[in-house]
Design a binder for these strands. Structure first.
Length: 125
RNA sequence: CAAGUAAAUCGCCUUAUCGCUCUGCAUGAAAGUGUAGGGAGGAAAGUCCGAACACCAAAGUGCAACAUAGUGGUUAAUGGCCACCGGUCGUGAGAUUAGGAAAAGUGCAACAGAAAGCAAGUACAGGUUAAGCUGUAGUGAAAUCAGGUAAACUCUAUGUGGUGCAAUGUCAUGUAUACCAACGUUUGAGGGCUGCACGUUCGAUUGUUGGAGGGUAGACAGCUAAAGUGUAUUGGUAACAAUGCAUUCAGAUAAAUGAUAAGGGUCACGCCUUGGCGCGAUACAGAAUUCGGCUUAUAGAUUUACUUGUAAA
RNA sequence: GACUCGGUAGCUCAGCUGGUAGAGCAUAACACUUUUAAUGUUAGGGUCCUGGGUUCGAGCCCCAGCCGGGUCA
């Protein structure tokens, strides 16, 4: 798996996102929360991931964009370490639930903990 | 030199590594891969005006409603902009200004005051047969003249059909013209997107409201070459216009335009001291159909013109 | 994207066509009571969301902004 995060790896279907929030389970490591749902995709990709920041906590579009870019970047760099040997398909949504603007280091370390706890949880099930 | 006024411009840079999105070309059955190039703003914001464009009864008539309000110009258009006149503020450069009509009518004016209409008349002085008959004072934003007030109703002039890219068209997927209640309906219900009326047209597999539910919410076009941008000349006080030359400059859709590291620039502060060191800051803000304006936010930097004060020549 | 409603005391709200801003609850003091609660009397508390304008005078009228609700596929 490469360090890429292209169109096929992004979660885009509105229907699937609705189902994800209705039926999905979640793990969290403040200020991040990961919502996941086991499913199947038609185009052959194993994981589809989206990121989201609440408009309630961050009014400025610039700040929201900045946080989403940080989340996407840290997911892109870390996903090879965790999902290289994964077989089942999942839809993921990573939410930022904090109220302060983060820097890259905290997002990166928290991303690692939330991904590892996700792996632990699905291997237990 | 100090303080200020107006107008205009810019608003971080370089390198390395790893990425995102669009377009062209090559390759491939396809997914993709390789390669070349493009990729946020002066406000992209607020959605306050004006248009383009699209659809909606022949885009009908009247009323209502709303907007604007000195004069002239400018523009595709405007409630924007420019020039001039008048008012207000400032020593000044300048700033600001919804600035038509009170002899069409209706209303309003607290407190004070005799009185802010339709009825009266305070104090002092004068004056007369008599009398608010005359003058002054006093109250108040305004006091005998009928005035003020229209960002009070109103009148006058001018303008406005409605809805908005979630418009609209094509394709795909799925379904319920079902059920319950009330009211109405070939004696014309109801629809054709408007607040009302009229007119016109369609019109019987029946309409409206409420309840309780079912389904879709994908793709493509619209979608970016345009009242475009830069520059020069000419006309005009100016807004702006005309002509020549050059140029092609985002198109995403849970929504790209980035992340990390190093170095530099600019500004403020501190230290030594006159160019180094340290530390901090580097704004407001992120396209979503497209333009022209307006309004609001904005660290800091630059340029031009001018005013006032002080000093020197 | 298109519309619409509101902002007044610590809280919930009045204030309708402009003339010194009120009510209830809450707070404080006093009285009553052995004490508290309840009750009674009194007092304090307001940039009327912000900034301009019209007016002699704006909570109210006009303009611009800020904040918070709600509706429409």
């Amino acid at each position: 798996m490469k360090f890429t995060f292209g169109k096929k790896d992004k979660l885009k279907s509105q229907k699937l996102i609705e189902r994800l929030f209705l039926e999905g389970k979640s793990v969290s490591a403040y200020p991040l929360r990961l919502v996941y749902l086991q499913t199947n995709f038609d185009d052959g990709s194993t994981l589809k991931t989206g990121v989201s920041v609440s408009k309630r906590n961050f009014k400025s579009a610039v700040h929201r964009n900045r946080i989403k870019r940080l989340l996407r970047e840290s997911y892109r760099l870390n996903k090879r370490l965790y999902f290289n040997n994964i077989t089942t398909s999942y839809a993921l949504m990573i939410l930022y639930i904090g109220k302060d603007k983060p820097d890259y280091d905290t997002v990166n370390t928290k991303m690692k903990t939330v991904l590892s706890s996700f792996l632990e949880k699905i291997s237990r099930d």
